[in-house]
Computed example of a mutant assay.
Amino acid sequence: MVLLLTTCAQGSKTSKAKIDNQVSANKTSKENLGIQEVERKLVKPPSTQDSAKQGIVLPEVKPLELEGTLAISGTQVVLPISQAIAQRFIQDGYPNKIDLAGIDTQVGFKLFCEGKKVDIVNAVRPITSQESAACAKSGVEPIGFQIATDAVTIVVSSQNNFVPKNLTRDEIAKVFTVEKWSDVNPKWPTEVIKRIVPAEFGTVGSVDLFAQAIFKGNVSLLINAPNTMAYEFVEQLHSEALVNPYMVGFLEYSSYKQNRDKLKAIAIDGVAPDQSAYPLIRPLYIYADAKAIWKRTEVEGFVNYYLTYVNEEIYTLGYFPVKPTVLDESKTKFLQVKGNKKLLKAANRRN
């Protein structure tokens, strides 16, 4: 099942560009799920010069002057950030179309490295050596930029009135392996635990991060536990929370924040998901092709714009900013790649 949402840029007098949002699906396991897409409001916060100019200041981008279309694919986790940046890019004058697809990191890299017209990959992890090798065969030079941080958040239904807001790692390990809630704590109900976890085994995503922190890396303890369901769309977890007070699962913090009426977050050893010491924090990235940055002004301009304004967008979406030094590292990397553009032009003139 493919859900296509097309929205015209609003509030822009100069641009007729469109954003096409696609949630792509695996034909065998997803097409009959009947999951409806949940629209995310793209809120453009008031722009402040201070937030835009912290650390390294990138060159100004004029979206109206850029040509060509853009295609963004990869994980659904980063998709809301890229949607917000794309919307802002269009509001600032970008005159062409931006296609956004929410699939997963692994598929995004596959399309990108095979040269399937994907310009930007949204990723929850660095590119692997195997993926880099596939890119090299296609002449693609992947460059990663860390743009935000996400917290994999353990949740129960808001109807759950017996699990406290904090559990130890040992208690969490039991919650995700034993059969009944009373097996974790004899004071809790003798009801079966329904576990809802992401279907991303082996892709170094939230499942692997959770297993590393709770099961010392043993993913099989989690995915082979009884009464465990893997969700393809996070809305499945939301729906289960509405009808089953005995469910437990995990998802990205931004999705929890947008659904706090359905879910209750669980702290780990007294550390909440919005605290820096939380053990299930992961970096988020976008990837682009260095050659595309050199040769295509729309790719160069979009990456530049993304790194300039990402911190202004993520707060309203439920993500966390990277440290200023980390964002500066991404900006420095971009400037280094952009600098090669001058060398390329010089080489072309000599030839």
Rank of each mutant, 00 (worst) to 15 (best):
S220E: 14
L317Y: 01
K117W: 11
G318P: 03
L307Y: 06
K30R: 12
S15K: 00
D150K: 00
K291D: 09
L42F: 02
P186S: 15
T149V: 09
T190C: 02
V2M: 10
A225L: 09
D20S: 09
E252F: 01
I268H: 05
V303C: 00
A241L: 11
A71N: 10
G339K: 10
A25Y: 04
V322F: 00
A346G: 10
L33K: 04
D208E: 15
I35T: 11
K16Q: 07
V248I: 15
E191A: 07
E300L: 06
A230K: 01
S51L: 04
R260E: 15
F233I: 03
F176P: 06
Q83M: 10
I103A: 15
K257S: 11
S138W: 10
A213K: 12
S254N: 15
R195H: 13
C113M: 05
Y287T: 09
L280W: 03
S276V: 07
P126M: 09
D119K: 00
K194R: 12
D170P: 09
Q54T: 10
N161Y: 09
I143K: 14
Q76C: 04
G249I: 01
P189L: 10
L70E: 07
T332L: 12
S51Q: 07
F162Q: 12
Y253I: 01
Y94S: 14
L221P: 02
W294F: 12
T297V: 06
L3R: 06
D183S: 04
V197S: 02
G217W: 08
Y278K: 02
K27T: 07
Y278S: 03
T325A: 14
N161Q: 10
E67C: 02
P142W: 04
T316A: 14
